[in-house]
Design a protein around this nucleic acid. Structure first.
Length: 575
RNA sequence: CGGGACGUGGCGCAGCCUGGUAGCGCACCUGCUUUGGGAGCAGGGGGUCGGCGGUUCGAAUCCGCCCGUCCCGACCA
């Protein structure tokens, strides 16, 4: 490709409002342009990156026996109604009516279509296992698109779906996907970690997320260096603290005027926040269960959640314990339920159901006295007979590892893929069954496996860049070689550059030839911004048949004779 | 959905408070000079100031409503 003919609109300034490095660089390097909130155009160079990622994914999927197909983005409402997600998912599912007035949806993922297909085409255990996949556009009306390409309303995803006869067979399919995923991310040059995940609206039980380390990431994980335990903080088990915090050496009711936050009582008593009990009154939604239950509306019943003062609530954990959606009670609801305003609420006594974090099994604490401006000292959970104990706190950096005696470390990450053991969540309601050896109908056991291509690209930029721009991993760079002709008006240089361009292309290299008649500074800046792994500069020594070879990532440059260029490039590119 | 901010040539911004000829940098076009890290000089083109309504002799500027975009939170296969 000649730069003189390529749409590669690089810009000097960061786009207004961009925060994430990948967002700034991908716009500046001329890879993407935003059309609307969370909706992007992939320009030629950006699309090349996406195609290279797609090619790697295809190779690895095909290598474990997956079959590529293509499923439609436009879906009839019916299949989403059958799976239950038409009602379970609210604003996030794009919906519209066709000209006949029939309800339609834009697919945000393809379990419904796969299950519909399986229901019609899979009849016998002899046809299983199968794994189907496609690389397709997904549509989600995100509440808050953000960070450039990281969280968008329209995006390209590889999603694969395994169909098996049993849970054991599913686990074998799952293991094969894990192998493929490890190879895909390694080939894309990403440093990732597989962590325990939440199955969220996908349903099912076991799931894992692939997380790429990046400060711009919106997820947080904790991991243990000793034993390798790793999980999303939303879900990570928190190990018991080695020692309980120092208790306040007082008993009974104590006047604490105006101290209605943990920070305030901590300051008032001059004791660490861990010496207090944080009592949250929540409203538990009735009827709703699991993901997507509508909040508000139907009757909600109050309950109390207890945490140590220095701990934060793991909302996902609580939702799982409750088996229902919940929200924090309003001030009025707190008064109605507990007889006192927020800030002085405590568990001794309370008529409400109580859910207490495991850490509170031991220790003596100060809690709200259920009386305005009073706290109660000397509280233990033995005084709260109805308390149900559970792991309710959000894990954080510095916590003890739940599996060994190591320590958990926190990190920000981008979720670049995930895998779920769905089981029969979709096959059962949608009637996707097969006949087993005994002629008995059984629900197909399913798994689903996703990778967001744009997130892989953005994560690669986050992990591989410097002050001058992107430094792409060779396998997913828009081009392998950026051939820079320093002076287009110099006949010797131009002739050599043309010759090299033809030669390298013939050798199978993916070359961008900067043949533009612009000043050298612009060319060098653009080359560093775009970030192709190898730069070949045809300049002053063209008359001697010598060019300069620069490795973008390390910045090393050396002169290479024409004859040795192809070999040097092969070495640099690792092929 | 709650909180905050922004919207002015293609891009990044100033002007708005205190109403009175729409400005800067980059990009773009022409010419000449230049050519190894975003060149110089000269000339030039391009803007219903997000939209609608109001106040006023007069609105980019003040007021109201709406739309769009970004940030924090809620939410998030």
């Amino acid at each position: 490709m000649r730069a003189s003919q390529l749409l590669l609109p690089t810009v000097k300034e960061d786009p207004a409002g961009a925060e994430a490095v990948s967002h700034k660089l991908m716009v500046r390097a001329g890879l993407v342009r935003q059309l609307a909130a969370g909706i992007y155009v992939y320009l030629p160079a950006g699309w090349r990156v996406m195609r290279k990622i797609a090619a790697i994914i295809r190779e690895e999927m095909d290598a474990i026996g997956c079959q590529e197909m293509l499923m439609p983005v436009i879906n009839p409402a019916e299949i989403w109604q059958q799976s239950g997600r038409w009602d379970a998912i609210h604003e996030e599912l794009f919906r519209f009516k066709d000209r006949k007035g029939a309800d339609m949806a834009l697919a945000m993922t393809h379990e419904e279509v796969v299950t519909w297909l399986a229901a019609r085409e899979v009849h016998s255990y002899k046809q299983l296992p199968q794994t189907w996949y496609h690389i397709q556009t997904k549509e989600r009306d995100e509440a808050r698109p953000k960070s450039g390409i990281l969280r968008t309303r329209e995006f390209t995803m590889k999603d694969a779906y395994s169909l098996d006869v049993s849970l054991e067979a599913l686990q074998e399919s799952y293991r094969k996907q894990i192998g493929a995923y490890d190879r895909i991310y390694a080939r894309c040059g990403l440093d990732v970690l597989m962590v325990e995940g939440d199955s969220g609206m996908m349903g099912g039980s076991v799931s894992h997320e692939y997380m790429a380390y990046a400060d711009a990431g919106e997820d947080e994980i904790v991991s243990c260096r000793e034993c390798g335990y790793a999980a999303n903080v939303e879900l990570a088990r928190a190990g018991a603290d080695r020692e309980a915090p120092a208790a306040v050496e007082l008993e009974g009711e104590i006047l604490t005027p105006g101290a209605h936050t943990i920070a305030a009582v901590s300051a008032f008593f001059g004791a660490p926040e861990g010496a207090f009990i944080k009592a949250l009154v929540i409203m538990v939604e009735s009827g709703g269960s699991g993901a997507g239950a509508r909040s508000g509306g139907e009757a909600a019943t109050p309950a109390m959640v207890l945490l140590r003062g220095d701990h934060d609530l793991g909302e996902l954990k609580l939702r799982k314990v409750l088996g229902a959606e919940f929200r924090l009670a309003t001030a009025d609801e707190v008064v109605a339920a507990q007889g006192v305003a927020p800030g002085f609420v405590g568990p001794v006594p309370t008529p409400l159901p109580v859910y207490a974090d495991e850490e509170l099994r031991r220790g003596v604490y100060v809690a709200g006295a259920n009386k305005p401006d009073y706290h109660l000292a000397g509280v233990t959970l033995a005084q709260v007979p109805q308390a149900v104990f559970a792991d309710l706190r959000e894990a954080r950096s510095g916590d003890a590892c739940p599996q060994c005696d190591g320590e958990l470390q926190g990190a920000r990450v981008i979720e670049v893929g995930n895998i779920f053991q769905l089981g029969t969540k979709y096959s059962a309601p949608m009637g996707a069954t097969f006949l087993d050896e005994d002629g008995k109908a059984q629900d197909i056991v399913m798994g689903s496996y996703g990778i967001g291509l744009a997130r892989v690209a953005a994560a690669a930029v986050e992990q591989h860049h410097d002050a001058n721009g992107i430094a792409w991993p060779a396998a997913i760079a828009p081009f392998e070689v950026h051939l820079v002709l320093v002076r287009a008006s110099d006949e010797t240089q131009a002739a050599l550059a043309e010759e090299l361009y033809a030669e390298l292309a013939a050798e199978g290299f993916d070359v961008l030839f900067d043949d533009r008649d612009v000043s050298p500074g612009i060319k060098f800046k653009d080359a560093d911004l775009l970030g192709c792994p190898a730069q070949v500069v045809v300049g002053k020594r063209a008359a001697e048949d010598v060019v300069e070879l620069k490795e973008r990532a390390g910045g090393e440059r050396r002169d290479v004779p024409h004859a040795g260029l192809a070999a040097a490039l092969r070495e640099l590119l690792g092929r």
